[in-house]
Amino acid sequence: MKQVASKISDFLFNFNVKNADLISKLIIGFALLNIIVLLPDVYDLYSLDGYIQSELNDKYMYAYNPLLNWVLTPLDNLGFSNKMGLLMIIGMYIFSLFFVMIRYKPFIFSIVAWLIHVMIVNSSYYFSYGADYFITFSLFANVILHLDVILKDKKVIAALHSFVIRFMQIQLCFVYFFAGFGKMIGHDWLDGNAMWYVMNTHSPEFIQNLMPSMIDFPFILTGICWSVLFIELFYPLIVYIDKIKHAALISIVLMHVGIMFIMGLYTFGMIMILLNYIAFGHYFESFQWKRRKFKSSITPAPST
């Protein structure tokens, strides 16, 4: 029993994180990029009188879900218009991300950025999808990561950083397992029709033009479906098995690249690749190290 507890503790707290700052910068950089891309439509998406008016959106929210309304209404009472209030909140979000990026009061501003993002997502329920929720999760993980500024003991900080990476790894295992499990209990992912429908519906025109020829080779689509099913369902196992973990990680990244270009889900694909890189990117550091070692072993020794 003691051995198991020690192994769990070792797994969670003794992982050597060399690049905590880079991890934070990647998360923050992605959130910044995401909001900058959305800026032209920010008013239509998030304002109280945007495409989906707040009364309609808030109807499906619990009273405790943080909403932009919580800030916009008091600002309105202070004489700031809805538009000005929204610009102030979005500005605050961008500045908070920027301050975290330059490590100015990173703990406080990572909390501010995370909470504003939660409000933004909740206030656009009908427009929010997987990518938004994964950004929320990443910003939350970033807050835990920045707890290091209030800790003094270097050992505790190292343990905390290790914990955050393991936390993200386990989260990804849950994500992929349930994504695979959900597909496994239907029909379409087992007989190949899922890819057939998805590619006919979401893919760019040049791929859609190729779809009729797929009718003669349905096994290709069935093969893709089964591969997706296998990778997702067994991700929690294969990503930890030494001999296949690199292949597992490359496969999952390729799957997301496919999602980006076939379905046009660029933000979703990128955030998932980023999360995989943060959680398991260190696999490729050791891979590079082994390659260098292998190269040096086959380089002939200089003749004397």
Binding site: F134, F178, A194
Partner: peptide
Amino acid sequence: TGVNRGYEFFSPNV
């Protein structure tokens, strides 16, 4: 924490 929606993307069928 952003984990309020399940991960059953495009499931069980499309």
